[in-house]
């Protein structure tokens, strides 16, 4: 830490806000190593409990197995209840009906990402990790990809939109956290928004993808992520340039004796 701090201070005698912020980002990137972000690190002394009760879990996972044949419908839910050894009436546990299968799939697959994260390369950069994790998450949709349009339809109905957006935000946050991102500036928000948009785009593309092993979806995702990096890099450069110019101007005026 002591070695990193002077970095922040080298040219602090100016008003270069953008430069300072990007230097702060460099600083906290440098400070944090990957060990810090083992998948085990959760919120402060708190292990997330499973969001589903054992009964719900049994019925919904059995229902998910019927989705490839029956789609995201109440029929699949009823079949699931029967398979799990419950009466047909027990589908009343799920007031949102077929949507509860979609939600179950999203939540369980999001939580399952943590397991995959431990198999990531230990010193890979964040962009590689994000790509690997996002691909892993997309591959989890493989068995039900031909039915996923139904799920998207359910997700975009007015009463479910808050849940879907929240779930997308949580997924984006999970991907970035597991990939080892430690940004805690305003880029925290832009990173998450950009990744959510890219992931949602790739998921939509996947529903139309007829290539073998969804190779085209993979390419699509890679291209979008690269573009995102380019845009971010470009904006960073512009910010740095503006910061340098402003700092230079202020320093120049000071050297001429202007009292600023």
């Amino acid at each position: 830490m002591a070695a990193a701090v002077p970095l922040l201070h080298t040219r602090s005698y100016s008003l270069n806000l953008f430069g300072l912020i990007s230097r702060i980002q460099e600083l906290d990137r440098g400070l944090m190593n990957n060990d810090y972000h083992k998948a085990t690190a959760r919120r402060l002394e708190h292990e997330a409990p499973s969001p589903f009760s054992p009964t719900e879990d049994a019925i919904l996972s059995a229902a998910l197995a019927h989705v490839p044949t029956h789609g995201f419908t109440t029929t699949a839910l009823t079949h699931g209840a029967r398979d799990a050894g419950y009466l047909d009436i027990s589908t009343n546990l799920f007031p949102t009906g077929a949507f509860s299968i979609v939600n179950f799939h999203l939540v369980t697959q999001r939580l399952a990402l943590a397991k995959h994260a431990s198999s990531l390369q230990p010193h890979a950069d964040i962009a590689t990790n994000i790509r690997s994790l996002a691909l892993h998450r997309l591959h989890a949709n493989k068995p039900i990809a031909h039915r996923w349009q139904e799920a998207l339809a359910l997700l975009s109905t007015a009463r479910h939109i808050p849940t879907s957006l929240r779930e997308l935000a949580l997924l984006s946050d999970e991907l970035l956290f597991l990939a080892g991102s430690t940004t805690v500036t305003s880029a925290w928000y832009t990173d998450r928004a950009a990744l959510a948009a890219i992931y949602a785009g790739a998921e939509l593309f996947m529903t139309q993808d007829r290539s073998k092993g969804f190779a085209e979806t993979e390419e699509f995702l890679t291209r979008r992520l690269e573009e995102g990096e380019k845009v971010r890099g470009g904006l960073d450069m512009v910010g740095k340039w503006v910061g340098m110019q402003a700092g230079g101007l202020v320093d120049g005026l000071r050297s001429k004796g202007v009292w600023i």
Partner: peptide, 11 residues
Amino acid sequence: STFNEMLAKHR
């Protein structure tokens, strides 16, 4: 930087 670390660590 202490608080930056804490925020990143505790999400």
